[in-house]
Design a protein around this nucleic acid. Sequence first.
DNA 1: TCCAACTCCGAACGACGTTCGAATAATACC
DNA 2: GGTATTATTCGAACGTCGTTCGGAGTTGGA
Lengths: 234, 234
Amino acid sequence: MDAIVAAALELVSTQGLAALSMRQVATKLDVGTASLYTYLPGKAELAALMLDAVMADAPLPHELPGDWRAKLAAWARDDWAAYRDHPWVLELAAVGAAPGPHMLRWLDSAIQALDGTGLSDTERLAVIESVDGYVRGLATLHHRSGGDASPAEVERRGAALGELVDFDRYPALQRALRAGAKPYAADQFEFGLERLLDGVAVLIRGRRSGRRQRNDADGSGTLRERGTTSGDPP
Amino acid sequence: MDAIVAAALELVSTQGLAALSMRQVATKLDVGTASLYTYLPGKAELAALMLDAVMADAPLPHELPGDWRAKLAAWARDDWAAYRDHPWVLELAAVGAAPGPHMLRWLDSAIQALDGTGLSDTERLAVIESVDGYVRGLATLHHRSGGDASPAEVERRGAALGELVDFDRYPALQRALRAGAKPYAADQFEFGLERLLDGVAVLIRGRRSGRRQRNDADGSGTLRERGTTSGDPP
DNA sequence: TCCAACTCCGAACGACGTTCGAATAATACC
DNA sequence: GGTATTATTCGAACGTCGTTCGGAGTTGGA
C-alpha cells in the first residue's frame, strides 16, 4: 500500500508522468498488475495518494521564523522549489481529487501563520489561496515554457506548429526581447511574489490603523470591502 | 484542418477533455481516423492548435479602456471567465507547447497596456506573467476543488481516500470554516487580484517619484531591486 | 495520356485501465 | 486438527487509445 505509492513516486520522478501506469508500478513491485486493485480502487486514487505524499514533505508555515511576511515568503519559495523538483504535480491533479490529511494539516498551519495580522479568518484563507495560486500558476507557466527556453527555441517550436513566427508583427514583444527580457525566466518568481506581498501588506496596514483587536467578528464570511482600489491617473 | 480543430473544440466543450480522442474527432467529421494524420503529426499538435484557437477570442489588453490598472483588472477577469468557460484548458497544456500566433499577439498587446507606467520592458513582462500566473493558478485550485465544494462534500470525498477526515485535528481550519469561510470560493479571485494590483501600484508609484522618463535604459534585463520589502513588526 | 503528388482509410500493433473468476494463502471458529 | 470464511494473487481477456503501414482512389500539370 505505502509501497505502491513509493514505487509510483519513484517511477514518476525518474521516468516522468507519462510512464506512470498500473503495469509499470506492478512490475517495479514484482507483482501482477491486477493485484494492485486489491488495495486501490483505481489509478485516480493512486494519484491522490501520491499528491498527499508530496505534501508530507512541506514544512509547516506557522513554524517558520519571522513575521507574517517572512513566513509567507518562505513557504512560497518552498512551494516553488517543490514544483521545480516534482513538475509532475503540475500535470497531475488538474481534476477533482479530495484534499488529503497532509494538505489539510498544511492549510491549518498556514492559517495560524497569519496570527496577529488583524485579518479575519476569511481573509486569511483568501491570502493563502492567493499566494498558493500565484506560485502554482507561475510554476505552470514556467514549466510549460520548457523551463528556460530562448527566443530562438520559441521560434523553432513555433515553426513546427504551421506558419513560421514573424516577430515583426509583435513590435512591443520584439523590443522587450531585444532589451534582454526573458519570458518565463525563473527569477521572475521573486518579482511577482514581492508585488503580491506588498499588496497584502497594504491591506494589513489598513486593518491595523483601524485598531480593533477582536479577531473575527467583523462580519466574517465576506471579502467585499474596498482596499486601495484606485489606479494612478496619467 | 480548421474543421478538425473546430470539431475537437466542440467535442471537448460538450463531452469533456477525457472524451477527446482521434477516433472521436474523426467520427464527428465523418472521416476515417487515419485521415487526420494527413493534416496533423499527432494529438499534441491538435492540442496546441486548440489552445491557440481559444486565445483568439481574448480581447487585446491595450485596447481596453482606462489606466493601466483598469486594463490589467479587465483582462484578468476575462482570463478568469475564460478558464471558467473552458476548464479543459487547465487540464491540457501542462507540458511544453509552443506559443501560437494569437498568444504572441496577446502578449504584445499586454506589454503595450503598460505604456506610461515608467516600468521597464523586463518589469512589464514580469507584471504580466505575475497576473497571468495568479489567474491561472487560482483557476486551477478552484477547478480542482470541484467548482464550489462544501466542507461536507470535502469530508465525504476525503473518506473515500482511506481514513475519514477528523476536523478536530485542524483547529484553525475548523474555526475558519465555522466562521463562514469557504475555501476556494469564486469571489476569492477578486480579493487576491486587488492585492496583487495594489502591489504593482506600489512599485509604479516608486518609479514615478524617482522621475526619469526614459523608458528602457535603466539596466534592463534584471529584476533585482528592493521594492517595499519590509513586513510589519508586531 | 501518363505520371507524380496528394488525399483517404481499413487493418493492425502495442500499450493502457479495468474486470472476471479461479486458484492460493491466511485467519477464525468449533 | 478440521473446516468454513475471508483475503490475496493474478493470468486472461475486453474495450479503448495513439499511431503506423501500405495500398487504393483522386487530382493536376506536362
